[in-house]
Amino acid sequence: MKGGAVEAVQVSSRDNNADPSVGLSRGISILDLILRIIATVGTLASAVVMATTEQTLPIFSQFIFRAQYNDLPTLTFFVIANSIVGGYLVLFLPLSIFHIIRPSAKISRIICLVFDTVMLALIIAGASSATAIVYLAHHGNSNANWLAICQQFKSFCQRISGSLIGSFGAAVLLFFIIIISAVSIYRAAG
């Protein structure tokens, strides 16, 4: 009986002296999961807002002008890029949860780091190209005789501008996720 009590005390003292770096790694993994969830919402919301953006402007009774996102291939690319990144983030959420359970996993973190970097490049490409079109919609280009359309299509321009904000916000979060993954890999290796 006495030997069993001593053994139970030894086990509990080992649990109390757990490695604090495991707790820090778990905390970093939790932060990674939270950032991924927020980035997922940002990318998917940006894609939905852009894909549902259209405005009709009746001028006289015979002419109807319509602005839709799919009138411009750049905005279509923006929707596709945000949808791909959002889908990727949703698919990799279970892996992020796995990293909370097993903070010392290295190979899966390296895989995430590589894919996160590719997705960051994709979302930046989509958001940057759409930004150029949104700039032209707001300001036009007198050298090319392109008129600014945002004076007439205010709702359309507000929605696509808001969609860009969500996409760039998700890109910033992906950047921080990449840094967090690199720190986690470094901590696991050392």
Score class of each variant (00 low, 15 high):
E54P: 00
E54L: 07
E54T: 07
E54N: 14
Q55W: 07
Q55T: 04
Q55M: 08
T56E: 13
T56F: 04
T56V: 13
L57Y: 15
L57N: 13
L57F: 15
L57I: 07
P58A: 10
P58D: 13
P58Y: 05
P58C: 10
P58M: 05
I59Q: 14
I59A: 07
I59K: 08
I59Y: 12
I59M: 13
I59F: 14
F60W: 08
F60Q: 13
F60P: 00
F60G: 12
S61E: 15
S61Y: 07
S61V: 09
S61P: 01
S61A: 14
Q62K: 11
Q62N: 09
F63N: 08
F63M: 09
F63A: 08
F63K: 03
F63S: 06
I64P: 00
I64M: 11
I64T: 15
I64L: 13
F65N: 05
F65Y: 14
F65D: 06
F65V: 09
F65Q: 13
F65I: 05
R66S: 11
R66D: 08
R66Y: 00
R66H: 11
R66K: 15
R66T: 15
A67V: 04
A67L: 08
A67S: 12
Q68K: 15
Q68H: 09
Q68R: 13
Q68S: 12
Q68L: 05
Q68P: 00
Q68N: 12
Y69P: 00
Y69K: 00
Y69F: 14
N70M: 04
N70S: 14
N70T: 03
N70A: 09
D71S: 11
D71V: 00
D71W: 03
D71N: 14
D71G: 14
D71I: 03
L72Y: 07
L72Q: 11
L72W: 01
L72K: 05
P73Y: 07
P73T: 10
P73E: 08
T74M: 04
T74F: 01
T74H: 03
T74I: 04
L75E: 00
T76G: 04
T76Y: 06
T76Q: 09
T76I: 12
T76E: 12
T76K: 05
T76N: 03
T76H: 04
F77T: 03
F77G: 08
F77H: 09
F77Y: 12
F78H: 05
F78S: 01
F78Q: 01
V79W: 01
V79A: 12
V79G: 02
I80N: 04
I80A: 13
I80E: 02
I80Q: 05
A81M: 06
A81G: 02
A81R: 02
A81K: 02
A81D: 09
A81C: 14
A81E: 00
N82Y: 03
N82C: 09
N82D: 10
N82R: 01
S83D: 02
S83L: 10
S83A: 15
I84N: 04
I84S: 04
I84K: 06
V85C: 05
V85D: 06
V85I: 09
G86Y: 08
G87M: 05
G87T: 10
Y88Q: 01
L89Y: 08
L89A: 11
L89W: 05
L89D: 08
L89H: 06
L89E: 12
L89N: 13
V90G: 02
V90A: 15
V90E: 01
V90I: 15
L91Q: 03
L91E: 02
L91S: 12
